[in-house]
Structures are given as structure tokens and as C-alpha cells.
Nucleic acid binder design. Structure first.
Lengths: 165, 165
DNA sequence: GGCGAATAGTTGAAGCCTAAACTATCCCGG
DNA sequence: CCGGGATAGTTTAGGCTTCAACTATTCGCC
């Protein structure tokens, strides 16, 4: 049974900023569709989760190690979130902690050799999945989409500035 | 002892799938940026959450009521998830349950008058927020993006068919 | 030196989410 | 009519996530 999605259900909403809403719902649907599939496969094939994978990816890009705070900023999640994630990954033997010698509050995380091997496997598969899911787009479509999403990101950031600060 | 650096690791990955990955990451970033802001505002201005809002939106579109199962399909979340969400919304007095007269397993959910009023307020604000965040795009950009995301959705669904069924 | 502000990280409470096991009910074919 | 398979919903265990309150440490400054 094919599930409905938010966008399909929008068929009959009242007038207004309708186009923007429709665009947002479609954006959300696309992302959720892909993300759900990636989570499913990470779970099925590697018995892991997207947040764990993302954390490992950060460490892979910074072999010298990252502090928990740096990780939380890069992943755009809260500090407390990283605490728990790191604890689970450490218990699995994929990352190791090291208290900073110059700042006893800080500790940096690094991949263990096993973590590095494990992430390499996951990462290769992940890249293939994404390519497979986006295979229906032509090169020029992908390029155009990439550009428009860049414009969207800029628009959103501008919108955030306005209200906040 | 010399660890791989990020560049080396990138160079090792199979060719051609880089663009797809980049596109996916940008799509994810855009969605997360918007979604986080909407969650923040729903919380700050209405003391509610996105899942609650989404569930109310489903009921608003179907005044005759929806069963929990229909809601879970439309929201693309699990059954158990809706059970909890519905319980919280019922406790807040925004929705009411009614056991089906023809099928004693099923119960349908409807907005209460208060739920309808409350959702109307939230919905109007929500639509404005989305329009505001996407205001930096021109009409033609929005249209092009909408079209490309439609193509993307089709590509992803095709990719899902392949593996599963 | 020492005090107050800032920073790094942890913890706890609460909500969201899933998969899997479970209960209750319905439906259908023999 | 009745037994098995499908369906509606709940429950449970576990993970993710945030916010707010907390501890420990460092830094700036007098």
C-alpha cells in the first residue's frame, strides 16, 4: 500500500502563500523519502543509524580529532545529544576519547582503526545508495537543482536574520 | 602512523557519485534549516510541536474524521507513533476519539471546536513563516525548483521500487 | 591571588520515532 | 459456523533530540 504524503494531501487548501507552502511540502517529502530509505538501509545492512554515521563522517574528515563541542556545531545538534552518541560509539569501539592536555574540560574524539574500517564500508555503500536514488535525474537537472537549492539556502538564511538577532 | 587525510579518502571513492552526494547533502541542509526554524517557532509561539501540527492539519482537511491508521499512512509514520500523538492531543482537548459503530477495532479522530480554532491560528502563522523563508526566490525559481523536486521524487520512488516491492 | 564570566561537557525530563510483539476484531472460504 | 489470515490499534524497548539545570574548568581582569 503506497503511503500518501503531505503534499498529495494538500490538494484543497485555501488561497494565500500557497505556492511557497506547496514548494516546502514537496521539499520536505523528497528529503524524508530519501532520508527514510538511507536510515532503513543503514539499519538493515550495518545495524547502525544515521546520527552515528554522521558523527563518524565528521571524524573521518578530521583525523586529528574533534572535541565534542566542535562535533555538535558541525552536526548542528545540541551538546547533550553528542554526549550520548559519543558514549554509544565508544562502547562499540568505533571511536576513542582523549582528554586534552591543555584544557581539562575538553576531550577530543577520534576514530579507532576499527572505526575507520567500519566507516569506510558504510560510506561507500551510502554513496552508492544516494547515487541510485538520484539516478533518474539528468546531469543538467542535478546541476540546476543544486543551484536552486543554493539559492534557497541563501533565502532561508536571510529570512532567519530578519526575525532573530 | 600517518593517518589518511580527508582528501585522500575522497579521492579513493568510486568515481561519478560525488555530484549526487553533494546534491543530497544540500537538499538535506535546506530542509533541516527550514524545519528547525518552523519547529522553533511552533514551540515559541504556540507551545506545540511539528508532529502535533501535522496531525491537526490532517484532521482539518478531513472534517468527517480519520482513523488512526489513515493518519499514520498520510503522515508516513508508524502506527505506534500515532497512538501516542493522538493521546497527547486528546488530553489537550484538541481532538476527540470516536469508536466506529461498524468496526469495533477502528476509531476515528476529529478536531474539537477548540482544536479547530487553535489549528487555524497555527496554520496561518505557519504559512506566513514558510513564505517569509522562501521570499528570496523569484516566482520562476520557485516554479523551477518545484518541478525539479517533482522529478526527484519520481526518481527516488523508482529507486525504491527496484530493491523492494 | 582571586573573583566573575565564559566555556566544555553531563545529566534529567520530556517528547518523538521505530520495530516487533501483542490483543482484539473482522472477513472469508470451506 | 468456524478457523485462519488480515487488519486496527496498543505496548514495549531502545535510540534520537531538545532544553534547562548542573559541574568543572579556564580565562580575563583587577
Amino acid at each position: 500500500m503506497m503511503p500518501l504524503d503531505a503534499e498529495t494531501a494538500l490538494a484543497d487548501t485555501p488561497p494565500g502563500h500557497k505556492d511557497e507552502l506547496r514548494l516546502w511540502l514537496r521539499l520536505l517529502t523528497c528529503t524524508n523519502l530519501i532520508e527514510a530509505e538511507i536510515r532503513r538501509r543503514l539499519r538493515a545492512e550495518f545495524d547502525t543509524t544515521l546520527p552515528r554515521f554522521d558523527l563518524l563522517a565528521q571524524l573521518e574528515r578530521h583525523p586529528a580529532g574533534l572535541t565534542l563541542g566542535e562535533i555538535s556545531r558541525r552536526m548542528m545538534v545540541s551538546n547533550g545529544n553528542v554526549t550520548g552518541l559519543a558514549a554509544r560509539l565508544e562502547e562499540e569501539g568505533l571511536v576513542e576519547r582523549r582528554v586534552s592536555t591543555t584544557d581539562r574540560r575538553a576531550q577530543s574524539l577520534r576514530l579507532t582503526p576499527r572505526g575507520r574500517r567500519e566507516f569506510a564500508r558504510q560510506s561507500a555503500a551510502h554513496e552508492g545508495w544516494v547515487a541510485e536514488l538520484l539516478a533518474g535525474l539528468s546531469d543538467s537537472e542535478r546541476e540546476a537543482l543544486h543551484r536552486l537549492l543554493g539559492r534557497t539556502k541563501a533565502s532561508v538564511r536571510a529570512g532567519l536574520q530578519e526575525g532573530g538577532t
